[in-house]
Computed example of a mutant assay.
Amino acid sequence: MRIVLAAALALIATTAQAAEKPVIAFTWDDLPAHAALPPGVTRVQVAADLLKASADAKAPAFGFINGVQTEREPGSDAALKLWREAGQPLGNHTWSHKNIASLTAEQFIAETAQNEPMLKDLMAGQDWRWLRYPFLSEGDTPEKRLAVRSWLAANHYRIASVTMSFGDWAFSDPYARCVAKGDQAAIADLERRYLDGAAAVADRSRDMAKTLYGEDIPYVLLMHGGAFEARMATRLFKLYQDKGYGFTTLEKAESHPFYKTDVDPSLPPQPTTLEDALRAKGLPVPPLPIDLKALESVCR
């Protein structure tokens, strides 16, 4: 009887630990063409490497597209087709990645709508109505923000919030410069900074969530579909796995109540970044534990 009871308690403990495992939804912005390419690398190869690493880690990969890139880099649309052939979804990052602060509400809505024909074709009847705001900027005035949210709600969009970001985008151009120069020591240093930054920011996001709620929420990680990200993807997935994270879909992550006002843009907006949620409660926001400014001078 004692053995049976012990086994039952062990099973309950194991189940509880599994339920408490933090999860991340990986999202990849700026497809099909983020930042500069190093010599000899193609957009299709970047997409293929990202998708393979995602598949190996069993991590869903939600991509957000800027359709203008298929005009700026003819042939890059093949990377989007590859994404879909891998069974991974795509959503709307607006046509040309303009900051809403530089546009009227009407102009921003037009930028969003311009992407839709491409998404409809690529997604072939599956749900693509997720918007990731460029620069994560939702408007420089309350009136503009509400006007766009009203249009999004009327057109059945959900907003893809972000609750984890370590500035991966800032490594892309330095990496391309270092490859062009053949500076292997500088590339190794970029790799170290990248992984150290990802680890520190993962801890920071968990600390913020626990300060706010006493527990983890599902985290939505902002990434970008660039060459350095493709180089580092396998190691990045392993880093999160070693820290105890699992991976989930964007839709499952944003089913958590924290994201409810972005999943339903008809609701009055509430903070949907951990930083803004802390500020709204008058709590201090921990500093970002990575110096992105220092990357600007690398391999110059």
Rank of each mutant, 00 (worst) to 15 (best):
P284C: 09
T249H: 04
K81D: 07
E116N: 11
P60V: 06
G63P: 04
Q69R: 10
A280F: 12
E85R: 10
F247R: 08
L222K: 05
S137P: 00
A294D: 04
A35N: 09
A154R: 15
N155V: 06
E20F: 04
L236F: 00
A188L: 06
G225V: 01
L278F: 11
F237E: 02
S54R: 03
P32C: 12
K181E: 06
S96E: 11
L195S: 09
E254N: 01
K81I: 01
L295C: 03
P22A: 10
G125E: 01
P218C: 09
T27P: 03
T261F: 10
T163N: 13
P265N: 03
T211W: 00
S172I: 00
A10N: 08
K181Y: 06
G225D: 15
G282D: 10
E215K: 15
A79D: 10
S172A: 15
P289I: 02
F171A: 01
K210D: 11
M208R: 03
W169T: 07
T15M: 14
V68G: 01
L136E: 08
A35D: 08
E138D: 07
Q270S: 11
P265T: 03
G167L: 08
A79F: 12
Y213S: 04
K210Q: 15
A6C: 13
G63K: 07
R72Y: 13
P117N: 11
L119Q: 05
G139W: 00
V263S: 12
N99Q: 10
Q45A: 15
M208E: 15
D196Q: 14
P142L: 00
G197T: 05
L283I: 07
Q45G: 12
R204S: 07
A10D: 08
A8P: 05
G197K: 05
A13L: 13
D242R: 12
P142D: 07
V263G: 05
L90M: 09
W128Q: 02
P174Q: 08
T94I: 00
T70S: 00
T272S: 15
A10S: 14
P287D: 14
T261W: 09
K144E: 01
D168W: 01
R158A: 13
P89Y: 01
G214R: 09
E191S: 14
E85H: 11
S137V: 00
V46D: 08
A113S: 04
P257W: 00
K238M: 07
T112C: 11
C299A: 10
E215P: 02
A8F: 07
I12S: 15
Y259L: 13
T15C: 14
A18R: 08
L31Q: 09
R204I: 03
F26M: 14
L278C: 14
D262M: 06
S102M: 04
K144A: 10
W95Q: 03
L292W: 14
I290A: 02
Y133I: 00
R279Q: 09
S161T: 14
I217V: 13
A188C: 05
A280Q: 09
R43W: 13
L292C: 10
A180M: 13
